[in-house]
Design a protein around this nucleic acid. Structure first.
Length: 478
RNA sequence: CGGGACGUAGCGCAGCUUGGUAGCGCACUACCUUGGGGUGGUAGGGGUCGUGAGUUCAAAUCUCAUCGUUCCGACCA
């Protein structure tokens, strides 16, 4: 029987209820658990390990590009957060506020950080005084709190883990370059590690970050046809710097305001990985992000010679640098197959009496269920190639799906049809927010981004009929 | 924040309509069996029925409130 016909009965099938499938996978693959407070989840070891893989990649890339890690306080005095008016306007509705400390009321209430621009600015004001102090390229790994009304594991939580980079630059050009450079690193993460093709682009004014002059994002497309904003970078100009009195003496001797950026990705990326690659048997992890890349399942393990053979195989994988697990527990092989499929482990190695006799192992790919027998001396080499192949196949599958779900539309009927099908409706747009609002009203879809790849294909905006200026992707979004 | 559904053992559920002091499957423990797709069996352990009030001789069951989960909307990474 073909592997991919065996369905794990303990999770809802995608086609029956995609949202329920997602929640089932999150819990049954032991990625997370609910806590007793709404929107605050427990990141279980396996889920956290995936995040650690992402962290390791990004942390290396950040450091290679000159960034330093710092840590800012958890709380922001209300008075500080209020200094930049667009910023506070954007975040005030979702702030969690501490009003009592040690049994006494706190006069200047403490806001649990929803993001840390203000803290960074306050600090930068103290440590920047000359162009020689620039650029400042800081990043922090932390969690932030935003009091969300509707929460879903990884996709939207009241607390989530992320990194937030905050940089200050001498010139506008340098800051703008930084904004785009960090977006590229995020796109690399998708392409090189997560096997997710992100659409890169600029946000419309309506969708940009509170207080930013420009926001860029990477957008991923989920199998239910909805888009997921997976990371953002912002160019702030000097607005925050001026509000917080961050200034420096320039090369010309005059006082100037530095140009600022911020950028972040969060544990939402886990949600993207789960949805983009998962199937009815559970999670499917790209090899490069998988905490365990290879799982070894001994068959008839109580028969003499099986466990020693399995351990020897384990040793070889370890020595070759694979992230490998050997499961010697006394569950049946069938149980173990299901278990590790649920957890999305890219490659399974089966070793039993028949294989030992023949001097082979069976290798099974998680992404498509394909099985093959290889001789022991080719095992490591084959596994290396298979993991590369899996990574590539997963990216290509996701990329094909993306291409199939970008539809050029020339009028509102086509827009509706494209959104009905799922995915992005690619449209020429006049640039007027009123047209954006109208589309949202009619379809609930929002402008995801103006992609970098701007190839005009029509002259007029389908909503108002005026001259079109930009290519915009609309989609329903998480 | 609006609308729906749901909270009973670690997980998934039945019991509620018609109140009488809690049950099933999985998981867990022990032993046997089996092992190449969640083996089969025997014997066990575990629950103040989300929480708080109320009605009643008596509440998992009826009433009200509250908290949480989930789905669909509006708002946001």
């Amino acid at each position: 029987m073909a592997t991919n016909q065996i369905k794990n009965e303990s999770i809802t099938r995608q086609e029956d209820d995609f949202a329920q499938w997602y929640t089932d996978v999150c819990r049954k693959a032991e990625l997370m658990d609910y806590s007793s407070v709404k929107g605050f989840i427990i990141y279980r070891p396996y889920g956290y390990a995936i995040w650690e893989q992402i962290q390791a990649y990004l942390d290396r890339r950040f450091k290679e590009t000159g960034h330093e890690n710092v840590y800012m306080p958890l709380v922001i005095p209300e008075s500080l957060l209020q200094k930049e008016k667009d910023h506070i306007k954007g975040f005030a509705p979702e702030c969690l506020v501490a009003t009592v400390g040690g049994g006494q009321p706190i006069d200047d209430k403490l806001i649990i950080r929803p993001t840390s621009e203000t803290l960074f600015c306050e600090h930068y004001a103290k440590i920047i005084s000359s162009y020689r102090d620039l650029p400042k390229l800081y990043n922090q790994w932390c969690s932030v709190v935003r009091w969300e009304k509707t929460t879903r594991p990884f996709l939207r939580g009241s607390e989530f883990l992320w990194q937030e980079g905050h940089t200050m630059h001498e010139t506008e050009q340098e800051a703008r370059t930084e904004t785009l450079k960090m977006l590229e690193i995020y796109a690399d993460l998708g392409r090189d590690m997560l096997a997710i093709p992100f659409v890169e682009g600029r946000k419309t004014d309506k969708e940009k970050f509170a207080g930013a002059l420009e926001t860029y994002s990477i957008e991923a497309l989920m199998p239910d046809g909805k888009a997921l904003q997976s990371g953002t970078t912002h160019y702030f100009g000097t607005e925050f710097a001026r509000a917080f009195n961050v200034n420096f003496q320039g090369r010309d001797g005059r006082l100037a305001s530095p140009h600022q950026t911020s950028w972040g990705v969060s544990t939402r990326l886990l949600g993207a990985v789960i949805m983009v690659h998962g199937d009815d048997n559970g999670l499917v992890l790209p090899p490069l992000v998988a905490p365990i890349q290879v799982v070894i399942i001994p068959i008839a393990q109580q028969k003499p010679g099986v466990i020693p053979a399995a351990r020897e195989i384990y040793r070889q994988y370890q020595e070759a640098g694979f992230r490998v697990k050997l499961d010697e527990s006394d569950h049946t092989p069938g149980w173990k197959f299901s278990e590790y499929e649920m957890k999305g482990i890219p490659l399974r190695v089966e070793i039993g009496p028949r294989d030992i006799e023949k001097g082979v192992v069976v290798l099974a790919k998680r992404n498509d269920g394909a099985k093959e027998e290889v001789s022991l001396d080719k095992m490591i080499e084959s596994s290396t190639l298979l993991l590369e192949k899996i990574q590539k196949e997963m990216y290509e599958k996701a990329y094909r799906y993306l291409l199939d779900h970008v539809t050029e539309v020339h009028n509102l009927e086509e827009l509706n049809a494209a959104l009905e099908k799922g995915g992005y409706a690619k449209m020429m747009w006049c640039g007027d927010e009123a047209c954006e609002n109208k589309i949202k009203e009619l379809t609930t879809a929002t402008a995801r981004c103006m992609p970098f790849n701007q190839i005009p294909f029509d002259d007029v905006c389908p909503v108002c009929g005026k001259k079109a200026k930009k290519v915009v992707l609309f989609a329903k979004a998480y």
